[in-house]
């Protein structure tokens, strides 16, 4: 138990260091980007047909608060605010605190990503067990082949393909936004149903993206457990097949939990592309828009949130690991 707490503390310390590093990097990186919010807005107004003088005047009014302090002072101020949980005020959503903007977007990323990930993990691992056990038969070969194919498809290709097939071509699933705009949000069956159908395409994309690599990883893990002595020993003791399958499954899935934690971060990062394809207003979409608008505070906040998610997922994986592996537990 003591060893476990020590490891947990180490993980936490490493996580905090990572959060701090990412906060620092994004701060300076974002400021090193060419252009600034004022210029971006000015160009936008001019392109929108506004006379240059008027545009300049409007920028001066709207973005007048843009800091002219030295960068280091801005950075220290940013860190100080960060410690108080204050991420600043969004520029593109003028006047709205970044935390509020992010809070509105987070559920639309977290829920689809997690359910897609869980789905692909369950389906991929189950298929991996079957593929490993039947690796010498046709069905096992076909399963492995499906895994190899799916593992090679880039995320945006898959997203575009699904959007094209299920929305454009067959029009069985809705596209864009989180629910039908004509339905008032609330705890009603109509609204929830609309949310669910709108989430199908992004969730399916996340699930299909993970499926191939889970299948292949699980297959090789099961194949190695199948060669372990204790599986033969269980067979020679006359242990029932279902029990033996449980022995195999639990031992084989163990090393995959580390990968699962890492892939949470991967998926969140991947949501940038996928939400853009589906025009789904989650965190990834928000991040893309904030970059387009040079909304520094929002960008920093979104990056930071993705980092925190990865760190938390890692710590959760560690906790989970120690629950299921007695060699870590005691």
């Amino acid at each position: 138990m003591k060893g476990f707490l020590l490891r947990l503390a180490a993980k936490l310390a490493a996580g905090l260091t990572m959060v701090f590093t990412v906060a620092t990097f994004t701060f300076f990186l974002v400021h090193a980007l060419p252009g600034n919010p004022g210029d971006a807005a000015y160009e936008g107004y001019v392109l929108g047909g506004m006379p240059p003088e008027l545009a300049r005047a409007k920028v001066a009014v709207v973005y007048g608060f843009t800091s002219h302090e030295p960068l280091v002072d801005q950075y220290l101020g940013y860190l100080g605010q960060l410690l108080h949980g204050n991420l600043g005020v969004s520029i593109s959503y003028s006047g709205v605190p970044v935390t509020d903007v992010i809070r509105a977007a987070v559920p639309w990323t977290v829920l689809p990503v997690l359910s897609g990930l869980l789905l692909s993990f369950l389906v991929g691992c189950t298929a991996g067990v079957v593929a490993a056990v039947r690796r010498n038969s046709r069905s096992g070969g076909l399963l492995s082949l499906s895994g190899s194919l799916m593992a090679g498809v880039p995320s945006f290709v898959l997203a575009l393909l699904l959007a094209f097939l299920f929305h454009t071509l067959w029009n069985v699933l809705p596209y864009g936004d989180t629910s039908d705009v004509t339905i008032a949000p609330g705890f009603t069956a109509e609204y929830l149903g609309s949310v669910a159908t709108h989430a199908v395409l992004p969730v399916a994309t996340y699930a299909l993206l993970g499926y191939g690599s889970w299948l292949l990883t699980m297959k090789s893990s099961v194949a190695s457990v199948l060669g372990d002595d204790f599986i033969l020993a269980a067979e020679l003791r006359g242990i029932a097949p279902a029990t033996r399958m449980r022995y195999i499954g639990r031992n084989a899935v163990l090393p995959l939990f580390t990968t699962l934690a890492l892939s949470v971060g991967h998926m969140f990062a991947g949501s940038v592309l996928i939400e853009d394809v589906f025009d789904y207003p989650g965190l990834g979409n928000l991040l893309l828009k904030s970059i387009g608008n040079r909304d520094y505070p929002l960008m920093g906040g979104a990056f930071l949130l993705i980092t925190v998610t990865i760190v938390v997922a890692n710590i959760l994986a560690e906790l989970l690991y120690s629950v299921i592996d007695p060699r870590v537990r005691r």
Binding site: F230, A233, L236, R237, G238, Y247, L254
Partner: peptide, 19 residues
């Protein structure tokens, strides 16, 4: 297997489920 016939593995082999 296991009832009428008992088989004992080498000690160096891990004949038990580690979990």
């Amino acid at each position: 297997r296991g009832s009428a016939l008992g088989y004992v593995f080498q000690a160096s082999q891990n004949s038990l489920n580690p979990l």
